[in-house]
């Protein structure tokens, strides 16, 4: 609010003079706010990044080394360049570190698991849109019997804690014959994300004037045409929000993936990251390296879609 106050709350007669000064104040406020925000968000990430280049011995230094004194690429090498070889007594990796840092034997699975996560997340995003958009439109703009009830029904599926749903979900997946298959995660993630997808979109569609809907209908558009030609273009920011939501929820989910998957055919990134902790040893620096790698795809995606959210596409178009 401070940001806008300097921008607009000025008597009009002194507009020019004041606006120059207030423009400077505005920039300063924005600058300071941005710095604070970046520190809040990036400080832990910076530590994540820095420690991923440290050896396990360096990471326990007191006080911490904010920048690695002896940067090592060991963790990333293990993730990106570990060659697959058949494990025999001779080639087995003894859990004791040979070179100072402990690299878990599942390190080579990180990239394949990331691919699984990516495929699953993309599929969940697409299905969310296909399934969620029409439903949200119907709930927001079509007056039909049971409309309210349907909104609440959808929300109800997300009020039970996941812990309580693990076993019954497992039974469903097992009986669908989907254990250890990426499909198992695609359909469960769809089921856990789509209620919020619908909810977010309903609230957005509702904020669009009914007149748009009526006008389109009077022009002879079918419901489907109205949705696709009128509402979808206007809803782009919220669609992007929903896509990010579905993608990242799938990207992050751990508990169900832990239960449904058991080989690298279907294991996702969080499962492989968790497998780096064992009861015999743990490498925080390696886990941090994995965390760094895990950030990359979503951030690229975010950079790609970001302008659709921030651009304020709808601002002028919606004057009913």
């Amino acid at each position: 609010m401070t940001l806008q106050s300097t921008k607009f709350s000025v008597p009009s007669e002194k507009w020019k003079y004041k606006s120059k000064r207030s423009e400077r104040t505005r920039s300063a406020v924005i600058f300071i706010a941005s710095i604070f925000l970046l520190i809040y968000v990036l400080a832990p990430v910076g530590w994540l990044l820095s420690s991923s280049f440290q050896s396990e011995a360096e990471i326990v230094s007191v006080p911490p080394h904010w920048l690695p004194h002896e940067p090592t690429m060991e963790n990333f090498n293990a993730i990106f360049f570990q060659e697959f070889e058949e494990v025999t007594y001779e080639t087995r990796r003894k859990v004791d570190p040979a070179a100072g840092g402990y690299i878990p034997s599942t390190a080579k699975d990180l990239l394949p698991s990331m691919w699984n996560s990516f495929i699953i997340s993309v599929a969940v995003v697409i299905l969310n849109l296909v399934v969620g958009v029409p439903a949200a439109y119907a709930m927001a703009k079509i007056r039909f019997w049971g409309r309210q009830a349907s909104v609440y029904t959808i929300l109800t599926t997300r009020v039970i804690p996941d812990i309580a749903l693990v076993v019954p979900f497992f039974l469903v997946i097992k009986n669908l014959g989907l254990l250890d298959h990426v499909m198992s995660l695609i359909i469960t993630y769809l089921a856990i994300t789509v209620p919020f997808t619908v909810f977010i979109l309903v609230s957005y569609f509702e904020s669009l004037p009914d007149e748009l809907d009526k006008a389109a209908r009077v022009d002879g558009c079918s419901r489907l045409q109205t949705l696709i030609q009128v509402f979808l273009p206007l809803a782009r920011p919220s669609l992007v929000a929903v896509m990010l939501f579905a993608f990242l929820t799938s990207w992050n989910e751990f508990l169900l993936a832990l239960m449904f998957t058991q080989t690298i055919a279907s294991q996702t990134l969080p499962i492989i990251v968790a497998s780096f902790t064992s009861d015999f040893t743990i490498s925080f620096s390696f886990i941090n390296a994995a965390g760094v790698v895990a950030i990359i795809p979503p951030v690229i995606l975010a950079l790609f879609f970001e302008r659709y959210i921030v651009s304020g596409l709808t601002a002028g178009a919606v004057k009913g």
Partner: peptide
């Protein structure tokens, strides 16, 4: 069953462990 790809069944022995000494177990 949509897709018939459950855990390996039949003559295969399913062995589950915690992730300790993974390579030794594999070998």
């Amino acid at each position: 069953g949509l897709i018939n790809r459950a855990f390996a069944a039949g003559d295969t022995v399913n062995f589950m462990a915690w992730s300790a000494a993974v390579d030794l177990v594999k070998s």
